[in-house]
Design a binder for these strands. Structure first.
Lengths: 337, 337
DNA sequence: TTGAAAGCGCTAACAG
DNA sequence: CTGTTAGCGCTTTCAA
């Protein structure tokens, strides 16, 4: 910048003001123009590191998660966050602690040592967490997790509403009987306080079903993987049950259900309708394509950085992001008796 | 740090040396101990930003890619890079340009303005690229892409060897006839210089097949998606062909092939063996589980940061990372005539 | 409207 | 073995 100032024949101060385009310290148009031209001429780029040392702001956000790779909470969250950050001229330090508390603490330190403006603390699946102590007092937003008593906003998918909407989709197609839920409330690597997604999805669904004069014939509790879907639906059919509609709590369960249904010679949605949750990649390529409640990954990531970059202090509110119904081909009218 | 020095009763210099544990400027054990204790007492953490201003090193790497979210080049690459960086006390700025050259340039600027020590330039699928001009003269490694004439090392999967190994797996199971390749050389959103992965996989395969006295009955050129696999294999069967083994150039193609085979009443691997490439998530959950050549995502990411953090100048070599055979259940002995 | 000067938190010559 | 001093590249009071 000294070079630019010299070339423009002004002081560093003037150059600084001209470059940052501030109006409170007015600079003559002539000086400003000369500075800008010199800067362009020299290919000048400000050293953000040096600026940060004075301003205390690095235009940088830290992102800490327990696991970014694994489904269903993956790259789309990051992509949404990245986009929002890019629009606001911020960069993201992405880190991943792999569920290791010590690593988590050391990552948060690494982030703080680099003077990040704020940090996003994200969980792979929606759950209660207790943030590492080095995050207390920092500007943080919780992504896909809740921490009662920790003073920060949370951004989570609106699972309750998704449960309701899934039930409505079934009702709208005429389903009132022979509805089974696969996956239930539990599932997912044991989280002490229970599985938020499972609980809310089920709660919303049962509420709407009941209001619509329908109900679940049964709820099968199992893990949320393809194998479990296959096994449980096979067992269900083997036991002589003949469901008209399956609510699978995840797309992976749906995939397993498809396999079991196919082997039993039952067609989707002719014999059995299937509605699912998550909208992972496979949902679109399954045959028939799966109707599913979409986890709004990108929007969650986006909202987290939008909140964090808002002026002023952060309110400890819970922001629920809608899970839109992704209509495809797995719901039909109920099969005849 | 001034506080620490004061508390320990030494000068900032002494504190600095003690804290950074350097031996060239020897510090008495007594002083060092006092400094360390004071630092702990005060919960002192160095300001990496300030340090960087002097040392020119930020312990930070920039990662620019055209697309991180989309398969098959996804989170695992980042995870590998993250792990390697973590082990070496570096942090990664992750960015994504979405294939937009202007965005790419501005992201590289943003990275350089923050004085990153180096940048990893990554592509979603293996191809030739021309790096943004702001990267010239910088310390960079190319990930999953090649740029002849650009002075930087590349890290790519060893597709040629993978093609050979796939052919060997088929040969080992006794397949010498009725082998079809689905996907061929082309595929993937048109890249001007051709599809590296497709070409090398095919080349390696044909080489080994020929040497083993076998050959391909046919090569079907199509895009690398599930729908294409379904459509092409359906067409192949409809045309009266009865393949004994299918080489699908991607797992998505395999998934489509499975659907077509299933509809035609053909079983895998009883009637038709399938070998595939990529080892995406679906490979393991398909029934039967898919035998496939694994894209070593994490190792690619890891190697990229290992190279970049090596002392000394970077050699413009091409590093090929092995693609291990992931044996599962889709290869059997050839069906009888 | 502009410039001199101080200083952000740290490191590194250079002297003692 | 340790302290003084300068300065990394920028912003920002304060005075002119």
């Amino acid at each position: 910048m000294a070079d630019v100032a010299r070339m423009a024949g002004v002081s560093p101060t003037t150059a600084s003001f001209a470059l940052s385009g501030r109006t409170d310290m007015r600079i003559s148009d002539a000086s400003r123009a000369r500075v800008l031209e010199a800067a362009k001429e020299l290919g000048y780029r400000p050293n953000v590191t040096a600026r940060s040392l004075r301003t205390k702001s690095t235009q940088t956000i830290g992102f800490v998660s327990d696991m970014i790779t694994t489904t269903p909470f993956a790259g789309d969250v990051i992509r949404g966050a990245l986009e929002a950050a890019y629009e606001r001229d911020h960069l993201l330090f992405i880190t991943e602690a792999g569920g290791d508390r010590a690593a988590e603490a050391s990552l948060v330190h690494a982030l703080l040592d680099r003077q990040v403006d704020a940090v996003i603390y994200a969980a792979m699946f929606t759950r209660y967490i207790t943030p590492p102590k080095e995050l207390y007092g920092q500007r943080v937003v919780l992504l896909n997790c809740l921490a009662p008593g920790f003073d920060a906003p949370s951004v989570v998918p609106d699972e309750l509403q998704a449960g309701r909407d899934a039930a409505r989709a079934l009702l709208a197609a005429g389903h009132t009987k022979g509805i089974w839920a696969i996956g239930g409330h539990l599932a997912v690597p044991a989280s002490p306080e229970g599985n938020i997604a499972g609980n809310e999805r089920m709660r919303g669904m049962e509420e709407v079903l009941r209001a619509g004069g329908a109900r679940l014939d049964g709820v099968i509790e199992c893990d949320w993987n393809t194998q479990d879907g296959y096994r449980e639906v096979s067992a269900l059919l083997a036991a002589g049950h003949r469901p008209r509609a399956l609510v699978c709590l995840t797309d992976r369960l749906s995939m397993g259900a498809y396999q079991a249904l196919g082997e039993a010679g039952l067609s989707v949605p002719g014999d059995v309708s299937v509605i699912s949750f998550d909208d992972q990649d496979i949902a679109a390529v399954l045959r028939p394509a799966l109707t599913t409640m979409q986890l709004p990954h990108a929007r969650l990531g986006r909202l987290a950085v939008e909140l964090i970059l808002r002026q002023g202090p952060l309110e400890a509110a819970v922001h629920r992001v809608a899970m839109p119904l992704q209509e495809r081909d797995s719901i039909g009218t109920p099969a005849a008796e």
